[in-house]
Design a protein around this nucleic acid. Structure first.
Lengths: 202, 202
DNA sequence: TACTTAAGTGAATCCGGATTCGCAAAACAA
DNA sequence: TTGTTTTGCGAATCCGGATTCACTTAAGTA
């Protein structure tokens, strides 16, 4: 009879896969895509380089997977905030705040996922992901404009500017030294900036 | 007697150097740092790969030089606008407008120079350059806050957000198809966004 | 237990592109 | 013109890291 994986084996494989993903994320967080060599991932997981290729066909694919996974999660978090009946103004503020403070906890990771260019394949995956973030903000913008809470403005450009402002302001301090105490203030400042930009008042 | 370059030779060398720089910029504009292989530069200039190394010790160095040169120029343009006695509000709007519309003419170039990460050496050079852009905007922000034209806000974060918003909003459309007609509208939208963010009103 | 298929290994291979280096040509000094 | 130094050449080399593959080990089947 044909070979068939036992549930136990099945589980072990799934576990390995998950561990590979986790290691990838951690390596990215430690120093961006540059740190993610298949060898490094393999070492971190305790497998051989060859084994990694049993789980992912290429490095790019592995990276895109990690990207999609992480973004899925982040978008879900944002959706939670955005898809309510509160005034758009409140939702916007909360969404910005959430996004920035979360990103600030893993700036390298955020940067790598949002901005760091690697190759065509990964870039393609990333464009999709960026747009998914953008969509969330676009929704709020549309609502706010429709409700007369925000001045009329380009929803597309607004969303892009928001994401851009986040990332730059978040990534920049990576180079400099920053203390945790400053983090809160940074989030405040970014939120303020973006809020004013959209709402047109303080 | 020791060898000494004739003025003619001197000129030819300087010219070669300049042409190498120009070719580098053009290649970056065509497709980012990825396009800049020493071989490609050499071919574009009509020299051999080896000859390039007579002018620049390494690829990174070449890139940093191109970066610094271009930024020098852009900062000068901005300074022209910013260092006047007009109200900060006007200067800010003009600076944003200038920056974005200029960048829009070479989005790949702008992106590569401002954001595309390559290696540690280049990154270091870029951080300096980003900050030089930031400084220009910080000056306006400070002036405006001091004059009571802008609400109180973090000058550092504001500058970072501005640059971030620019780049994201400018770079994003690179992927999509864009017509020249849209460019003007894009600049308007970005300017509006950033202006509201800083000034706190439409 | 004996056999078949999948999972895991890691050294060898491949690949793209930067960098080097021995040599040729051109520019300068005498 | 001869000797010296610099500039230019470009094939050969070097390098880092992805990918492969012949082989070993473990799991599943009968």
């Amino acid at each position: 009879m044909a070979y068939q994986r036992s549930p136990l084996m099945e589980e072990r494989l799934a576990d390995n896969r998950a561990r590979i993903m986790r290691a990838t994320r951690q390596l990215i967080a430690a120093g961006g895509f540059r740190e993610v060599s298949i060898t490094a991932v393999a070492r971190a997981v305790g497998l051989s380089t060859g084994a990694i290729y049993r789980y992912f066909p290429s490095k790019s694919e592995l990276y895109v997977q990690a990207l999609v996974d992480a973004v899925d999660h982040e978008v879900a978090v944002l959706r939670e905030i955005v898809d309510t009946d509160d005034p758009a103004t409140d939702r916007l503020r909360a969404a910005i705040r959430s996004f920035t403070s979360r990103a600030l906890k893993g700036p390298h990771l955020a940067y790598a996922f949002i901005a760091e260019p690697i190759d065509a394949e990964v870039d393609a995956g990333r464009i999709v992901c960026r747009e998914r973030f953008g969509e969330v903000f676009k929704d709020v913008l549309r609502d706010g404009i429709a409700a007369g809470e925000f001045p009329d403005q380009s929803v597309d450009v607004g969303a892009a500017c928001l994401v851009g402002a986040f990332t730059e302001a978040l990534v920049r301090p990576v180079a400099a030294t920053e203390k945790t105490a400053d983090a809160e203030r940074l989030v405040d400042a970014i939120t303020g900036f973006c809020f004013r930009a959209v709402v047109g008042r303080t």
